[in-house]
Amino acid sequence: MTDFSTFVAPPPSDEPNADAVEAASDCLDRFTAAFNASDTRAMDAELHFPHLMLSGAQRLEWAEPGQHPHDFFDKLKASGWSRTQYEKKDAVLVSNDKVHFVVTYTRRNDAGVVLSTHCNLWIATRVDGHWGIALRSY
């Protein structure tokens, strides 16, 4: 079991870890490229499981890959969606193995018109050398 005192107080770092931010940011980019390709398997490859999502006070946990609803992209496309685009990805808390991002992205139609704008907290972690998104808060 993890010692609570070390869990809440990881060793201090003298400066932000730019390599961790870059690697974690690349993971988010790969996830969104897969999202734009409607490729749920490639999306799952960029997630850590169990994967946690928070929306308001609701919590959704996926224990394993393959949990996206089969009609997810059909419904999204029916709304006019064509692609998702990052507007900002701000690393707000950084350690060697975890980066918290405040992510602002837009959903756009074929003409590039913004359909909606979202600002979320996404946390990417490095587990066994692999960066993946561990938590998304909507």
Rank of each mutant, 00 (worst) to 15 (best):
D26V: 12
K75E: 05
Q67V: 00
C27Q: 13
A42K: 06
M43C: 08
Q58M: 14
F73P: 06
A37V: 02
E61N: 03
Q85R: 13
N120E: 15
D110K: 11
D3V: 10
F31I: 04
P50L: 10
N96Q: 09
T106L: 05
E46K: 15
L60I: 09
W131K: 12
E46M: 15
W81I: 00
N120C: 08
L135M: 14
E64P: 01
L135E: 08
L121S: 12
A134N: 15
K89I: 00
W122P: 08
A42G: 02
K89V: 02
S38D: 02
E87P: 01
A124S: 15
S116G: 08
P69R: 14
L115R: 11
T106Y: 00
V8H: 01
E22G: 03
S79T: 08
A24K: 11
D90H: 06
R30D: 10
D128S: 13
W81D: 03
F73H: 07
V114R: 06
G129T: 11
D29I: 01
A45V: 11
V99Q: 02
R108H: 06
P10M: 03
L135Q: 14
N36R: 09
A111V: 10
A20P: 07
E87T: 03
C27P: 14
Y138D: 12
T32D: 10
Q58A: 12
P10A: 02
T125A: 15
D74T: 06
K98M: 02
D90Y: 00
V92C: 04
H70T: 12
L60E: 07
H70V: 11
P65A: 01
F72I: 08
M53E: 15
A124V: 14
L54V: 10
F49V: 11
K88N: 10
T6N: 05
D90W: 02
L60T: 06
A20E: 05
S25T: 08
C27R: 14
R126H: 09
F101P: 05
T125F: 09
I123V: 14
G66Q: 07
K75C: 00
L60K: 11
D29G: 07
N17L: 01
D19V: 02
D71H: 09
P12H: 05
K75N: 05
T40E: 04
A24V: 08
A124E: 13
D97E: 07
H118L: 10
G129R: 13
S55A: 15
F49D: 13
L135H: 12
F73R: 04
Q67H: 11
S116F: 04
S25K: 10
L47H: 12
D71S: 11
H100A: 06
L52A: 12
P10L: 01
A134W: 15
D14S: 07
F31C: 07
D74S: 03
K75V: 01
R107V: 05
L76F: 00
L60S: 07
S13Y: 01
